[in-house]
């Protein structure tokens, strides 16, 4: 399935968005690797029209000197929802994008519909602090992101050496965008945990059993902090669950969205 690529403007800055599939719209907020039209996003297109924006500063969308907090990115997301008429849309948020979904929903719960959060950033457990991400060492990054760090998939997304200048640029761009918002406090917002009680919509929390960036213990922390959530652990998957195990992840999300 080839998505339609659309370009829009938020605050006068270019944003690209991919759209594909059939059915009611489903907003997919991507993780730190950037907007990837593969794995979970593609698989969900069988039942819904997937809307995958490139978040501010990630490849495809302009880098913004004036945006540097997740709150800024939450306002950016509201502008996107308004512009595309997506008020109340169901959301799948992976990692970084899951954190963003929670930042939006904890401020304006009605702006979003149901939330499927796939190994979201956003909380910090002192008993299981997040693993290395911005050290950018491929040999350490692959195990942080992938349950099977030796897989072809892991090497394709986190190669020792990029295979082209374009790939290298895209990698640097995505790294910069992730760090812009998530460097400090590292991968979390200390105020988010107590704000999550405001998120009243149903939430599905999915977690890879072999997530080494944010261990699966986080799934229970999210479930406990949210008024209406259930958690589901997917075996044989790391942090990039949506790339490594798209089929079981998509089925769990489809069941959740249907009921």
């Amino acid at each position: 399935m080839t998505p339609d690529v659309e370009t829009l403007s938020i605050d006068g800055h270019e944003v690209s968005l991919r759209r594909g599939g059939a059915g009611a719209p489903l907003l997919v907020l991507h993780d730190v690797l950037g907007p990837l039209w593969e794995g979970l996003a593609v698989r969900l297109g069988r039942s819904r029209t997937v809307v995958l924006p490139s978040l501010a500063g990630f490849p495809g969308s302009a880098y913004r000197e004036d945006l540097d907090t997740m709150e800024d990115l939450a306002f950016w997301t509201l502008a996107l929802l308004e512009q595309r008429g997506l008020h109340g849309v169901d959301v799948v948020g992976e990692g970084f994008g899951g954190w963003l979904a929670a930042e939006v929903a904890s401020r304006w719960p009605a702006a979003l519909g149901k939330l499927a959060l796939v190994a979201p950033f956003g909380l910090r457990l002192a008993s299981a602090p997040p693993g290395p991400l911005f050290e950018l060492r491929p040999a350490a990054l692959r195990p942080a992101l992938f349950g099977d760090p030796g897989s072809e998939l892991a090497f394709r997304h986190v190669p020792d050496m990029p295979s082209s200048l374009e790939e290298f640029e895209a990698r640097l761009t995505a790294d910069r965008a992730g760090a812009r918002f998530a460097w400090d406090p590292y991968l979390h917002n200390p105020k988010l945990a107590r704000r999550l009680r405001r998120v009243r919509q149903p939430v599905l929390v999915l977690w890879g059993a072999a997530d080494r960036l944010l261990p699966a213990a986080y799934a229970e922390a999210w479930r406990a902090a949210l008024p209406d959530a259930r958690a589901c652990i997917v075996p044989e998957a790391g942090h990039a669950l949506g790339l490594e195990r798209p089929e079981p992840a998509a089925r769990a999300i489809e069941d959740f969205l249907r009921t």
Binding site: F134, E135, L136, R137, L165, F168, E169, L172, T173, D175, R176, G178, A179, R180, W183
Partner: peptide
Amino acid sequence: IDINTPGYTSIKSVI
């Protein structure tokens, strides 16, 4: 030089 920090210099400069 191999401990890069993301966004420390412009992408043009890194390349």
